[in-house]
């Protein structure tokens, strides 16, 4: 088999078909009508302007996180700590909001400060994982996983402790901010903010450009593909790993800030909403290429939003979207593995 573009596309279409087939079996096993389930999934994602805007709301943090992860994957790092980085970003931005709430500063500036704080928080948390790896010899997967738990604990402590609602601490989070500090939306009912969408699109464009045409991006690639040779070629390897951690954390923190400033308007216990892990899936699915990350992230966001009404309509659990996403990633990775094996066999 040749390693040509049509063949690769064929392989990807085959993988999607296989993932659908598997999910259909799961549906049949659960005694659910597959066609109705898929139809509802589609309707749930595209059936009205309201759900479409919900898809975009969910697309924003997912795309931000994926953009950051493309950088860490390029340098050869598995930034599992991305969830914690979103959470800490959200914490920092809530902190900025609380600090500036009564300061009389213009709302626009307060929001900007909250965004910057979120980026800072995410970057710091990511660099912690990077420092553990570089100076402590802790694999970034284990370090990141540990830091995720710490971030969650910190978040819960804040919500139920120092930042609790007056009178009752509650799972519903901290006191909502004044509406004047909400990121402007298209209309008062919607949570969709054009600014947030703009930030996410800018993020993926920046990462795409970085990886395609800059010294920084090329050096990241070199470190990721062969750190020893990169070092001998004169690239300061650990500094580049740290930089990619910091940048990835920055994007994750930004995602956390967006969740706080434009979606929930407060800090809630599950503020990261699993976008970090989903971003890992998207990045793997696009084979770490920035060019197709945006549409694939949109597809994943659509599956997520679409599955919300499955429990209501079909009494199915909404985790169906997760099943479909997970199998899709697995099947595509399998197909890539098979392709590499075949090419190797031919000695290419």
């Amino acid at each position: 088999m040749r390693d040509s573009r049509p063949n690769r596309t064929l392989l990807q279409i085959g993988a999607i078909a296989l993932a659908l087939l598997f999910t259909t079996f799961v549906l049949l096993a659960a005694k659910a009508p597959p066609l109705a389930a898929y139809l509802n999934l589609g309707l749930g994602a595209l059936g009205s302007w309201e759900v479409i805007s919900n898809v975009l709301v969910s697309w924003v943090p997912l795309l931000l996180v994926t953009s950051g992860l493309l950088l860490t994957f390029t340098v050869g790092l598995w930034n599992i700590g991305i969830e914690g980085q979103i959470t800490v970003g959200a914490i920092f931005s809530t902190w900025a909001f609380r600090l500036l709430l009564g300061s009389g500063m213009a709302p626009g500036l307060v929001i900007l400060a909250a965004f910057l704080a979120g980026m800072l928080g995410g970057a710091l948390w990511a660099m912690l994982a990077g420092a553990l790896k570089t100076f402590g010899g802790v694999n970034e997967i284990f370090g990141g996983l540990g830091l995720n738990f710490v971030a969650t604990a910190l978040n819960l402590w804040l919500i139920f402790g120092p930042w609790k609602r007056p009178g009752v601490a509650s799972m519903s989070g901290t006191v909502p901010f004044d509406p004047s500090l909400w990121l402007p939306t298209l209309n008062p009912q919607s949570r969709l903010s054009p600014i947030a969408v703009g930030i996410a699109v800018a993020a993926i464009l920046v990462v795409y450009g970085m990886l395609r045409g800059t010294y920084f991006g090329l050096r990241l690639k070199a470190v990721g593909k062969n750190p020893r040779a990169a070092f001998l070629l004169g690239i300061p390897t650990w500094q580049y790993m740290m930089a990619s951690f910091a940048l990835c954390g920055l994007f994750a923190g930004l995602a956390g800030a967006v969740q706080v400033a434009s979606v929930y308007h407060r800090l809630i216990p599950s503020i990261s909403s699993g976008y970090g892990y989903m971003g890992l899936m998207v990045a793997m699915l696009v084979n770490y290429k920035a060019a197709i990350a945006a549409p694939v992230a949109l597809f994943f966001a659509a599956l997520n939003v679409g599955s919300i009404q499955l429990p209501i309509v079909l009494q199915l659990d909404s985790s169906l979207a997760g099943v479909l996403q997970g199998t899709l990633v697995l099947v595509v990775l399998l197909a890539q593995g098979a392709r590499t094996r075949m090419l190797k066999k031919e000695g290419l």
Partner: peptide, 28 residues
């Protein structure tokens, strides 16, 4: 191939990496 060169990168990319870095963007 293990220590001297970076598999997956092109010859051009290697020359860019080995030369002095000039600015932010690569002049392709």
């Amino acid at each position: 191939l293990e220590e001297g060169l970076v598999p997956g990168l092109s010859l051009t990319e290697h020359f860019v990496l080995a030369e002095e870095k000039k600015g932010v963007f690569i002049d392709r």
